[in-house]
Amino acid sequence: MTDHPVQLENITKRYGAFTAVKDLTFSVAKGEIYGFLGPNGAGKTTTLRMMLDIVRPSEGRICVLGSNSAISVRRRIGYLPEERGLYRKMKAAQSIAYFAQLRGLSGRDAKKKAYALLEEFGLEDFARSKNEALSKGMAQKVQLLATIAHEPELLILDEPFSGLDPINQQTLEKLIADQRASGRTIIFSTHVMQHAERLCDRFLIIAEGEKRFEGTLSEARARYGQRLHVRSTAPAAAFEVLPGVEAVRLERNGGEESDYRIELADGADPQDFLRQAVAAGIVLTRFEQAGATLHDIFVDLAGDEASAPAHDQERAFARGAEAAE
């Protein structure tokens, strides 16, 4: 196995005439947290399912933990799908142990691990409760524990934060960080940028099934240049003529003073801008330097698709079945 437990090369997935994923290539390094970002219906879940060999790609090559099919290495993978569920009549500890057993643990070890995890996450009192009696947050925790109980090398989490309250989101963030600290590779998909910004070493932005960006947050910011927030009595035109200024956007018109967002060209120095402004007699009452946020980058790259209705992929899946004929 290489240092990249997950490698996808030129992956395409078509459902009849509809292409859900187009020529996607990326790899995930061992021990990193890799964010898989995209709007609803961008192809995230389809790609994750292809990684797990639940869905077969139409074209391209996938290598997971050194194998061409995740089926043969399933015991080394933990997967938490976006739409999660538990058997209603099963008890919490039984559920964790059952899925751990399916992923290779012996009955005794699975049971032991289930109780240990429930204790670690403060759910020991609910170990013998039926899943139908658990709150939504508790049930989600149980599902997550079932994903990690067999101590997988690779964790694939599809929208793990969805439906969790802020406290449980924090717990999950910590769990993901802990998993990485113990050497695991983690891929998680999300469209909540704050989590990705806080957790991911690298991320990939996908929209309409196509890769729009792959890299670190600094790389993304560098690509999007410097951004300044200034407050001044001067009109926008006064800034537009300064060297290195690419765009000026009025953020707030305060009557006497206005707030502007200044986009600088690649390589332009904010200090040069400040000097030029002072030399031009512009009075600045605010000068703030800021890089592009992941949210800005995401909106910019995903564009209109970011606000597209949910489950396009699913509809395409059904449509594809028809179109395949």
Binding site: P81, G85, L102
Partner: peptide, 17 residues
């Protein structure tokens, strides 16, 4: 129907074929 509607099936399919 329970496995399908409760969304258990995808977890199962990540563990077995």
């Amino acid at each position: 129907i329970e496995e399908r509607s409760n969304k258990i099936v995808e977890i199962l399919l990540s563990s077995v074929t």
